[in-house]
Amino acid sequence: MEKKLLKKDKLSGIVKKLAAEKTVYAPVKDEDNVLFKILEPGMEPLTSFANTKNAPKKVFFPHSELLMKYTRSPKGMVFAAMPADAEEFVLFGARPCDARSVALLDMLFDQEKWKDPYYIEKRKKGTVISLACVHPPYSTCFCTSVDGSPTSTQGADLMLTDLGENYLVEFLTPKGEALAPWFGEATAADAAAEAKKQAIAEQSAAEIKKKIPGRAIKPILDVSFEHPFWDTIAGKCLACGTCTYVCPTCHCFDISDEIKGDDGARIRNWDSCMFPLFTKETSGHNPRTSQKQRWRQRLMHKFKYYVDNFDAIACVGCGRCVMSCPVNIDIRKIVEDISKL
């Protein structure tokens, strides 16, 4: 794995040059927010920011995605066409937590038995450039409690760490190495740079004071499905679904059909386990009729079911749900409370 040093003022230019050749999703300023957007000419990619309002999962798993088109024939509606294959693109500026979320989604969408071709196609075509957190950006950050770290390389193809005057550029995968020509101005990294990065990694992780027992609650969850504790967590939940929409690892979706004249499209849209209709059957029966059950599902899916199925917690500790919840439900508090059951 090659490592290089790049003068900090060169980075923005490199990203813009990349954007001239292929689609680049980058963090950009949008009113009060920083959002991942396709970098158009004249737009400035941010290299110094806390984190984006939205998670970058949308570049691999869009809000709304065409699955296939169909058309009317004399004998009924028939298949017409697939969406065009994805083109090569770069996701620039993902924080390590968000890059990790992609590795977690791979476990589900790229399973041995059932593969999701839409997601996998975009994963093949997309290169992830992450920006290590030299200082954890928010008091709500808790990546170190869920198997991550502010300098984790998991899910990234190339990671940049701000060493002061230079970025340490780590080419992590063949896809990352393929970007080496764009980093032609970078020079070889020496042992001092490597040591500095190591020190930053340790100090940044130490700055995250909030620790929750992300792994330790698993055996408790194994036996707590019927615990009265669940009655207490959803009382103020509005079932708005915001937590699931901002979450980098939430991946539940709905499939629906849209038709106009003789042509139609089957699409999938993000869905949310927080919504009552999510599990409601045609008969009217609904296995999860209360917000308590839906909250239990969300928590269990992240801290038990995903661990059962993939030995991974489906939470990267980005803190977006904590910041976005309109009624201040804090998943860290819930995990702590469970650990005391």
């Binding site: 589900l108 059932w114 539940c252 499939i255 386990c273 599990t279 059957e281 296995p287 899916h301």
Partner: peptide
């Protein structure tokens, strides 16, 4: 068992009973 389903291949996330997907 029966549950509401969409994808049928254990991705869309609605037919789980605990860690198991009824569809898969």
């Amino acid at each position: 068992l029966e549950m509401r389903m969409k994808c049928g291949i254990g991705k869309c996330g609605r037919c789980n009973v605990g860690s198991k997907y009824v569809c898969k």
